[in-house]
Simulated scan of single mutants.
Amino acid sequence: MPLFWRISLFNAVVLVTATALLLGPVTVSTPVLLTEAAILTVGLAVILIANAVLLRIGLGPLRQLRRTMTTTDLLRPRARPAVDGHGEIAELIATFNTMIDRLEAERASSAARALTAQESERHRVAQELHDEVGQTLAAVLLDLKRVADRAPDPVREQLHQVQESTRASLDEIRRIARRLLPGVLEELGLASALRSLAAEFTGPSLSVRHHIEPRLPALGDNADLVLYRVAQESLTNAARHAGATRVDLTLERTEGALELSVRDNGSGIDDTAEGAGIRGMRERALLIGAGLLLRAVPGGGTEVRLTVPVRDPEAEPAGTP
């Protein structure tokens, strides 16, 4: 029975009973006697308390629903509120759950289209950097070498410096192109791509240690790309923003899932709003139904953990050990 009718029925029963008693053996004196006033006061208190209890029990699920509505984040899916209560309240909670399911599905679909377009644009830019800018700089290096071979000694030294600057720019262009288009991921698989990524970030100021299981389950191109991009974004954050000197990258099989962990010893995370990089990781995780956890590491640092469900435990290993 809906809450409205339960309260109305309860009050109707009380009022009809009170009216029947007043018309029958029960009377109220004029002026009202002390015992009669006490009885009326107790009766009124019982009615008010009963109404309050009925409303509190009936509206309890709505308070839980309100808390859920104020904390819902489509990038952080969690358990739906239980369909408690009766009548309209149960229908309202069920409708809210259906709405969240639909919104999450639409968000995942739009994120998939956006990420597909993003990867296509990355591919186009990487190709242009490699084919256009890279080839042009390579031709400039050859021209500089021919001119330097014929130039007098003072000019030759300056040309050599220009050659080194041009060569450094060419190396940087190739490095950017590799980050935009991880060809090793398509050619050699996820394990080799993550090892290559760890080696790329390792330098004088940052040490990246990795532990990657040699036999990984086949996840599909989308999942492999999401794992690679999350690892890449985590390493970028550790190197550029966290001031870390050591990062541990781990990819291992757990029960029913594949877990990627990137843990650094940097400055850690704070309560500020998440940037575009972290929100991008959450959208990628949502795309493949994975769970993403960011947490502060005791003693300083941050850990990014991506848990990708593995639906086929007997899948053939993918990638190169």
Rank of each mutant, 00 (worst) to 15 (best):
M1Q: 14
M1P: 06
L3F: 10
F4E: 06
W5F: 14
S8G: 09
L9V: 12
L9P: 04
L9M: 05
N11F: 08
L15I: 14
A18M: 01
A18Q: 01
T19K: 12
L21T: 04
L21Y: 06
L21I: 07
L22R: 08
L23D: 03
L23G: 14
V26P: 08
V26I: 11
V26C: 08
P31T: 11
L34E: 06
E36T: 00
A38E: 12
A38M: 15
L48K: 01
L48D: 03
I49N: 01
A52E: 10
A52V: 04
V53E: 00
R56M: 05
R56E: 09
I57F: 06
G58W: 00
R63E: 06
Q64M: 12
M69N: 07
T70C: 04
L75S: 06
R76K: 10
R78A: 05
D84C: 13
G87R: 00
E88T: 10
I89V: 07
F96P: 03
N97E: 06
M99W: 15
M99V: 09
M99P: 03
D101Y: 00
R107L: 09
A112P: 00
R113Q: 14
S120D: 11
R124T: 10
V125L: 13
H130I: 12
H130A: 10
Q135Y: 04
L137P: 07
L141R: 14
L142E: 14
D143G: 14
L144H: 03
L144F: 12
K145M: 11
R146C: 01
R150F: 08
D153A: 13
P154W: 14
P154R: 09
Q158W: 07
Q161V: 00
Q163H: 06
S165I: 04
R167F: 15
R167S: 14
R167V: 02
D171Q: 13
D171E: 12
R174E: 13
R174T: 03
A177W: 09
A177T: 00
G183K: 13
V184F: 02
E186S: 11
A191E: 05
S192T: 15
S196Y: 02
A198L: 07
A199K: 14
G203M: 08
S207N: 05
V208T: 05
V208A: 01
R209S: 06
E213C: 13
R215S: 05
L216M: 11
P217M: 11
A223K: 01
A223C: 12
L225C: 11
L225G: 05
L225Q: 12
V226I: 12
L227H: 02
V230P: 09
A242G: 07
A244D: 01
R246E: 02
V247C: 05
L251W: 04
L251T: 09
S261P: 02
S261Q: 11
N265S: 01
S267C: 08
G268P: 11
D270E: 08
D271Y: 07
G277D: 03
G277M: 04
L286G: 07
L287V: 02
I288S: 04
A290M: 15
L292Q: 06
L293F: 02
L293Q: 08
L293S: 10
G300Y: 13
G301E: 01
V304T: 15
V304A: 02
T307I: 14
V310M: 02
D312E: 14
E316W: 09
P321E: 12
